[in-house]
C-alpha cells in the first residue's frame, strides 16, 4: 500500500502519522524485552547502563547454582507432565465436541474454557482449599493437576479450530476403502490434525512453564518452579540473575513462536491452502 499521487494533504499526514505512531508503539512492545538482555552480561549487580564490561557471571549463577537448577528441573517435570495430560484430555474432548451436535454443547464448551477466563488468583485460592483436604498441596501431582486445568482450554481452542477445517469426507473415503475406524483415525485423521494438536501442546507447555500464581499457593520449596524463583528473585532478593533467566526464557519463547509459525504453515499446506 503506497501513497497515491493524488493524495490530499490530510491523507499524506495520515499516511506518515500512522507509520511513525506504529513504529513508536512497536518499539514500546519490543524494547523492554531487548533492553534487559545486555544487562544480563553486566559484571556488576546493577540494573543500569553503561556496562562496565562483559561477564557471564549471572549465567553461571543461573546454570550452575543448585537453587536455580532445581527450579529449572521442577519446571520441566511439571510442564512436560501437564503438556501430556492436557493435550491428551483436550484433544479427546475436541474430537467429541466437533464430531456431531451433542446436547448442551455450548454449556459444556463454556465450562471447559472457563479456566481461561476466571482470574488465576481465584482458581489458585479455590484449589488451595480443596486440594489441601485431599493432601494434594505441596505435591507435584497437585500442581500438575492445577496446571492441566489452566492449560486444557488452550488445547481445546487450537484443536477444535483445526478440526473445524478438517474435511470429514476423508474419513468416509478411508472407511469405504476398507479401513476400520482405528485405522481411519490413526492413518488419516491424526496425521492431518497433528499440527493443531502440537500447537495446542505447545500452548499447554508454555502455560505451565510460565505459571506462578498457582505455584505460589500450592507449592512448597521442593516444588519451586523457575517463574516462582524469579518472583522471589524480584520480590525478596533482588539479584541480576533474573535478567539472565529472563534472557534464557525469551530465547525459549522465540523458539516456540518459530515452531508454531512453522506448524501453522504446515497445517495450511496440508489443508491445501496456498498463500
Amino acid at each position: 500500500m503506497s501513497l497515491p499521487i493524488h493524495a490530499t494533504p490530510t491523507e499524506r499526514l495520515f499516511y506518515w502519522g500512522v507509520r511513525i505512531f506504529s513504529a513508536i508503539v512497536l518499539l514500546f512492545l519490543i524494547a523492554p524485552i531487548l533492553v534487559i538482555m545486555p544487562l544480563s552480561f553486566n559484571p556488576e549487580p546493577y540494573f543500569s547502563y553503561p556496562l562496565s564490561g562483559i561477564s557471564l557471571r549471572w549465567y553461571h549463577e543461573f546454570f550452575f547454582s543448585e537453587r536455580w537448577l532445581t527450579t529449572m528441573k521442577n519446571s520441566m517435570i511439571i510442564a512436560v507432565a501437564t503438556t501430556i495430560l492436557a493435550t491428551f484430555l483436550g484433544t479427546l474432548a475436541s474430537l467429541g465436541l466437533t464430531m456431531t451436535r451433542i446436547p448442551g454443547r455450548t454449556f459444556i464448551m463454556s465450562i471447559l474454557i472457563s479456566p481461561l477466563i476466571v482470574p488465576v488468583i481465584i482458581s489458585a485460592v479455590g484449589m488451595f482449599f480443596f486440594f489441601a483436604r485431599m493432601g494434594l498441596t505441596s505435591t507435584f501431582l497437585g500442581i500438575i493437576l492445577a496446571h492441566t486445568v489452566l492449560a486444557t482450554p488452550f488445547v481445546i481452542i487450537t484443536v477444535t479450530a483445526t478440526l473445524q477445517g478438517f474435511d470429514r469426507s476423508l474419513l468416509r473415503a478411508g472407511a469405504s476403502m476398507g479401513a476400520n475406524p482405528t485405522e481411519v483415525f490413526f492413518k488419516i485423521m491424526l496425521p492431518l490434525i497433528m499440527p493443531g494438536v502440537i500447537s495446542g501442546g505447545l500452548f499447554a507447555f508454555v502455560t505451565s512453564f510460565d505459571e506462578v500464581v498457582v505455584v505460589l499457593f500450592l507449592a512448597s520449596p521442593e516444588q519451586r518452579t523457575l517463574p516462582r524463583q524469579m518472583f522471589s528473585g524480584i520480590r525478596e532478593i533482588i539479584s541480576p540473575t533474573i535478567t539472565a533467566a529472563a534472557t534464557v526464557l525469551t530465547i525459549l519463547s522465540t523458539a516456540m513462536l518459530v515452531s508454531l509459525e512453522f506448524l501453522r504453515r504446515r497445517n495450511e499446506r496440508l489443508r491445501g491452502i496456498r498463500s
Partner: peptide, 15 residues
Amino acid sequence: VLLPFWTSLLVRTTA
C-alpha cells in the same frame, strides 16, 4: 507483536 505475546509474563514484568 507476537514475540512479546509469547514471552513469559514474568519476563516482561521483570523487564
